[in-house]
């Protein structure tokens, strides 16, 4: 399958935080959810992809080309949405359109105004007076009005009410209906990604811990509910991490079907992306607490 975006061994070291040998790829035509808790490295990764910050090592290919070789040509094909609007408060949508029309070669004012109408955004009101939802919709309108083939979005639904989030997610789904359209969407709202993502990538403390097809990940991972006595009978190799609760210990396993056969007496449930994220994050804490380096565990990658 064609890869629109590929990161190979990308590293960025800030001293107190390091993005460490990140390998990530996004298939053409897919919605890829980029999940991680706050401070995991999602924004840093996106900033590196867009060349907003310089990488220390590694290779980033967008549309098959290194972003450093022809950054302006590649950025013409990328639409970007950040968690904060980034436009001046005193500018109106019309003024932003005038600015963008003289920056993007393929800026389509008619499409932009269509989106404004669709999103019920005023043309001549200063965007400083917009609500958070309106600011996000404005960014999305801008990102989708210059013929972009790849949308890169950094927590676009964060802080939005469920109705606006639903609206925006529908727009994303409509966007990828076109064959050559792809989305990379970072979020810590896993329910959004469960709804629309085709692929997911988990990042924790600057490292990719899990990547692959979303449905496969949900299908293969499972949550075992063990009593304390049962826990000792479970092979450590099957355990990703554990979480004690009031009545039992929850155990995340990477191969639900195999573990269901291996431990028939233990209750096995389907899990959610949120649980998977929490358990993988806890895995690092639990391993560190045991005095072992959390770096020793390799990232699990499921093939498509």
């Amino acid at each position: 399958m064609d890869k629109v975006l590929e990161l190979k061994n990308v590293t960025k070291d800030y001293g107190d935080f390091k993005l460490d040998n990140v390998n990530l790829s996004v298939t053409k035509g897919a919605i890829c959810g980029f999940i991680g808790q706050n401070g995991a490295g999602k924004t840093t990764t996106i900033s590196l992809i867009l060349d907003i910050i310089k990488r220390d090592a590694g290779d980033i290919q967008v549309f098959g080309e290194d972003i450093l070789e022809s950054p302006t040509a590649i950025k013409e094909r990328i639409g970007v949405v950040f968690d904060e609007m980034g436009f001046h408060d005193f500018m109106t949508a019309t003024q932003i359109s005038k600015m963008m029309a003289n920056i993007y070669k393929n800026w389509d004012e008619a499409v932009f105004f269509d989106y404004l109408e669709k999103f019920s955004l005023p043309r001549k009101k200063r965007c400083g007076a917009f609500s958070r939802g309106m600011r996000m919709k404005l960014q999305i309108a801008v990102a989708m009005s210059h013929g972009a083939e790849l949308l890169i979005m950094d927590e676009p639904t964060s802080g939005l009410d469920p109705i606006v989030r639903n609206e925006i997610l529908q727009i994303f789904q409509e966007f990828v209906m076109e064959e050559n359209h792809t989305i990379l969407l970072s979020s810590h709202i896993t329910t959004d990604l469960e709804r629309i993502a085709d692929e997911v990538v988990f990042i924790n403390k600057g490292k990719i811990v899990l990547a692959g097809n979303k449905d496969e990940i949900l299908e293969t991972h499972g949550l075992m509910k063990c009593k304390k006595n049962d826990l000792s009978g479970i092979d450590e190799k099957d355990i990703i991490s554990t979480r004690p609760s009031a009545f039992c210990t929850e155990v995340l396993v990477a191969d639900r079907q195999a573990c269901a056969k291996k431990y028939p007496k233990v209750t096995m449930e389907q899990t959610t992306l949120e649980d998977i994220m929490i358990f993988y994050v806890n895995r690092g804490s639990q391993v560190s607490a045991n005095g072992k380096s959390s770096d020793k565990k390799e990232a699990s990658t499921l093939e498509d």
């Binding site: 907003i52 302006t72 013409e76 950040f82 904060e84």
Partner: peptide, 18 residues
Amino acid sequence: KADMRAEFGKQLFSLPVD
């Protein structure tokens, strides 16, 4: 100062400008 207040830096570098 206006660019700083708007946090325009990220938007700017995501645009096709060098």
